[in-house]
C-alpha cells in the first residue's frame, strides 16, 4: 500500500475535550477538509512552543464516517517535550494547524489472524484497527498493557466492544504481559501490529526474531518519542563544522544541529529511514536509541545513531557526544 508523506496543512477547530484516563485528554477536532479515515492514520500538528514552531504526531483514535470529526488522545507525561501541555490546554472553539490524515501504519486485510498489541497511549493507534477487524469478523486478539487501570484510556469501551478477544495486563495488578509467552503462542502466520513504549516493542521484536517469524508480519509505529532514558539536556559536538551546541530536553539533536547551522541530511524525521545517521566519535554517557532503523546488533555497536530521534543521557552530569555527519 502506498503511504503518503506530502503534508497538506489545514485549520481544525476543537469541538470537544475531556479526560479519558490519568493524564490523557481526548480532543475532538473538526478539520476544514474532512476525508474518510483509515485505521492506523495519524495527524501532524503544528504548535507554537515559545518562539519555535514544533511538529507533533498523534494517532487518530476514531472518527465519523466522513472524517468531519476526528478524535485524538494526548498523553502528557512528566517529561513531555512541551507539545502535550499545549494540547491539554485546548478548549472548544480553539483552532490549530493540522496536516491532512497521514498513513504510515496501514492495516493489511487478508491475514488469517491478527494480534494487536497496545502499550499505554499506544492504544490510540490500535483501537481503530481492532474496531475494523471486529466489524469485518476477522480473527483477532487485542492485547492492552498499562501501568494502572486508571491510566489506560478507553478501557471500559474496549472491554464492552471486544469482550473475550481483549486481554488486559496491568502492572500494579501483577498481571504484566509475558512477551515471550505471547509471541510463542501466536499462530505462525499471524500479523502483529504494535504501538507502545520502545521497551515493549523491542522485547516483542527480539522474541519475533528469535522465533524466526516472518519479519514483514511484525508491524509497528513509533513517533520516536519513547526511549530508554528520560529526555535530558546534553551537548553535541560536530568538529567538521566547528559546531558545539546544547540539545534541550524538548528538542531533537537534529533540530539543535540545524539551528546551529549544520548542513544535515534527513528525510522521515521519525527514526525510520536512517538518512540522518551520524557517526559517534566520542561519547560521555549512554546512547538512547529511539529509532526503528537499526537492528539489535547495530545498536550494540554504539558507533552510530539516528539524530532525528535518538539522544544521549548520563545521570547527574550532562552527557556529551562528539559526532561526524555525511
Amino acid at each position: 500500500m502506498a503511504t503518503s508523506h506530502t503534508e497538506l496543512w489545514q485549520r481544525a477547530t476543537v469541538v470537544e475535550v475531556r479526560p479519558v484516563a490519568d493524564a490523557v485528554q481526548r480532543i475532538v477536532l473538526a478539520p476544514e477538509h474532512p476525508v474518510a479515515i483509515e485505521p492506523g492514520a495519524h495527524l501532524d500538528v503544528r504548535l507554537a512552543l515559545g518562539t519555535d514552531t514544533v511538529q507533533r504526531s498523534y494517532s487518530i483514535v476514531d472518527a465519523d464516517i466522513s472524517g468531519s470529526r476526528i478524535s485524538l488522545s494526548v498523553f502528557r507525561s512528566l517529561h513531555s517535550r512541551g507539545g502535550a501541555g499545549l494540547m491539554h490546554a485546548l478548549v472548544p472553539g480553539d483552532t490549530l494547524t493540522v496536516s491532512h490524515p497521514l498513513q504510515d501504519f496501514p492495516l493489511r486485510f487478508g491475514a488469517s489472524s491478527y494480534a494487536l498489541l497496545a502499550g499505554g497511549i499506544g492504544i490510540t493507534a490500535i483501537a481503530g484497527m481492532a474496531r475494523v477487524l471486529r466489524d469485518r469478523g476477522d480473527d483477532y486478539r487485542l492485547i492492552y498493557v498499562g501501568r494502572t487501570r486508571a491510566a489506560m484510556a478507553y478501557l471500559d469501551e474496549l472491554i464492552a466492544l471486544h469482550g473475550d478477544r481483549l486481554d488486559v495486563h496491568v502492572g500494579d495488578e501483577n498481571t504484566s504481559l509475558d512477551v515471550r509467552r505471547l509471541v510463542a503462542t501466536l499462530e505462525p502466520d499471524t500479523e502483529l501490529y504494535q504501538c507502545g513504549p520502545i521497551r515493549l516493542m523491542d522485547a516483542v521484536r527480539r522474541e519475533w526474531i528469535e522465533r524466526e517469524l516472518p519479519i514483514a508480519s511484525l508491524r509497528f509505529e513509533t513517533f520516536g518519542n519513547s526511549g530508554w532514558f528520560e529526555p535530558q539536556e546534553f551537548t553535541v559536538r560536530l568538529p567538521q563544522f566547528g559546531i558545539e551546541t546544547v540539545v534541550g530536553p524538548t528538542q531533537s539533536m537534529l533540530e539543535a544541529l540545524e539551528a546551529a547551522g549544520a548542513d544535515m541530511m534527513f528525510d522521515c524525521r521519525k527514526g525510520e529511514c536512517g538518512l540522518c545517521e551520524v557517526r559517534v566519535l566520542e561519547l560521555e554517557g549512554e546512547i538512547d536509541h529511539r529509532d526503528v532503523f537499526y537492528s539489535e546488533r547495530q545498536r550494540d555497536a554504539r558507533s552510530k545513531l539516528c539524530c532525528c530521534v535518538s539522544r544521549v543521557a548520563r545521570p547527574q552530569r550532562g552527557a556529551v557526544v562528539t559526532i561526524s555527519s555525511s
Partner: peptide, 18 residues
C-alpha cells in the same frame, strides 16, 4: 504524484540532489 521513498543508502544521491 508518487513520492520517492528514501532510504539510508540513498544519502549519497540525496546529497547530489541537494
Amino acid at each position: 504524484d508518487y513520492e520517492f521513498y528514501s532510504l539510508n543508502i540513498d544519502a549519497g544521491g540525496m546529497w547530489v540532489r541537494r
